[in-house]
């Protein structure tokens, strides 16, 4: 199945990715942000805060946005 995966870290990424049936938010996060800690991100499924064990559905919109993003001067 496909989900719209949005990673707002760094250069930003937004595209449909193929995931296996039964994929949870936690496993997608581990796969896509291997060096990140979930508590450092706003994780949303279909624009709503999501639990780590939420199972993804086909065509879901999943976004990861870092809670700390450093501005500059």
């Amino acid at each position: 199945m496909k989900v719209l995966f949005i990673n707002n870290d760094g250069a930003g990424f937004a595209d449909y990715v193929e995931v296996e049936e039964g994929t949870t938010v936690r496993s997608l996060f581990k796969k896509e942000v291997p060096h990140g800690q979930p508590e450092g991100y706003l994780i949303r499924v279909n624009r709503q805060p999501a639990a780590a064990d939420q199972v993804l559905q086909d065509q879901d919109r999943v976004s990861f946005t870092a809670t700390k993003i450093e501005g500059a001067a």
Partner: peptide
């Protein structure tokens, strides 16, 4: 000044 959030 967006800093590291600029591209995203």
């Amino acid at each position: 000044c967006e800093g590291e959030g600029s591209t995203a």
